Simulated scan of single mutants.
Amino acid sequence: MSAPNQSSQDVANGHFSSLLKHWRNVRRLTQIELAVDANVSAKHLCFLETGRSQPSREMVQLLGSALDLPLEERNALHVAAGFVPPYSDKGLAADNLQPVQQALDFILRQQEPYPAIVIDGRWDIRMRNQGSARLLKPFRDSYEMAAGLADNAMHVVFHPKGLRQFIVNWDEFAGQLIQILHRDVAQGSRAAAQLLGEIMAYPGLSAEWRLPRQASASAPVMTMHLAKGDFHLAFFSTFTILAMPMDAALQQIKIECFFPADDATAEKARQLAL
């Protein structure tokens, strides 16, 4: 039993050989398959996984690409091999990303009068448009959550005193949403893995949600029905990501745009925008 524990500790400590083997197993590749994908010899890959050989910077980059790792994990692989991480991790805070900020502002404005938000890799809401503020205000005013949690899209949906209490189809909607978080974890997001643990600590969640599964094919889109007294809304949403970002934090940015799922919601959005 000691070998698996040691391996897990090696991964946590960022040892390159264990980290490489960990991600190869996550991607369900044999050494030969990864060697072919990376255009290296299976013998050399074996030596890298056992620690008998040390990789060059170019080899680390090649393996990270062959494993299709997110940029934050490629950085971790470089650090484990003793190299400076090649990708910045400043996201929207970077001084040179003003054009990205302007593009996000433009997308949010174009979504009016319907809601739109920008979320990061931990599902924290970084930006929102006026449509989001107007339409969700009646619900947000009733949240009984810590300020930090109230600005996290996942916590808002799953917290018993958040939006969850107003989602009419919460079991169906939350069951599908948790699978999106599982996919983020499967792609290698450490932030998503931590968030998943926090979410699953809430009461009233199905034990089945602890494991990833195929999303239901019963409906073409995921719809959220909200109700507070006589105030009713129904939305479906889309996610947009930035193409080919070279910043680890920016790679995890998602833009979620909400669209009315019925005429009554569309009319309510137009009326509140006047």
Rank of each mutant, 00 (worst) to 15 (best):
M1Q: 13
S2H: 13
A3P: 02
S8N: 15
Q9V: 03
D10Y: 11
D10L: 12
A12R: 15
N13R: 15
N13T: 10
F16R: 04
S17Y: 10
S17D: 14
S18N: 08
L19P: 13
L20S: 02
H22E: 10
V26Q: 15
L29G: 00
E33I: 01
A35D: 08
N39W: 12
N39T: 10
K43R: 14
H44Y: 10
H44I: 01
L48H: 03
E49A: 00
T50K: 01
G51H: 09
S53V: 01
S53L: 07
S53I: 04
S56Y: 03
M59F: 01
V60K: 03
V60M: 01
L63T: 03
L63H: 03
S65T: 14
S65I: 10
D68T: 11
N75H: 02
H78M: 11
H78L: 13
V84H: 13
P85E: 00
Y87Q: 07
D89P: 03
K90A: 12
G91N: 02
G91Y: 02
D95G: 05
N96P: 09
P99C: 02
V100W: 00
Q102L: 12
L104G: 04
I107Q: 13
Q111G: 04
E112L: 10
Y114T: 09
Y114C: 10
A116D: 06
A116Y: 07
I117V: 08
V118S: 02
D120V: 00
D120F: 03
W123T: 03
W123E: 00
D124F: 05
R128S: 15
N129A: 01
Q130H: 12
Q130D: 15
Q130A: 15
K137Q: 15
K137M: 13
P138A: 09
R140E: 13
S142H: 13
M145F: 10
A146P: 05
P160L: 01
G162N: 12
G162I: 06
Q165W: 11
I167Q: 02
V168D: 05
V168K: 05
N169H: 05
W170F: 06
F173L: 07
A174R: 08
G175H: 03
G175I: 02
A186G: 10
Q187L: 09
Q187G: 08
Q187F: 04
G188M: 05
S189F: 06
A193F: 08
E198N: 04
Y202E: 06
P203C: 00
G204D: 04
G204E: 08
S206I: 02
A207M: 06
A207D: 11
E208L: 09
E208V: 09
P212F: 03
P212K: 05
R213W: 10
Q214A: 14
A217K: 14
A217D: 14
S218L: 08
A219K: 12
A219Q: 14
T223G: 13
M224P: 05
M224A: 06
L226A: 02
H232V: 09
H232C: 07
H232W: 06
A234K: 10
A234S: 15
F236L: 11
F236K: 07
T238R: 07
I241P: 09
A243R: 12
M244H: 11
M246E: 13
A248C: 04
A249I: 12
Q252W: 00
Q252T: 05
Q252K: 06
K254E: 10
C257Y: 07
T265E: 06
A266C: 02
A269N: 00
L272G: 09
L272M: 14
L274M: 15
L274I: 15
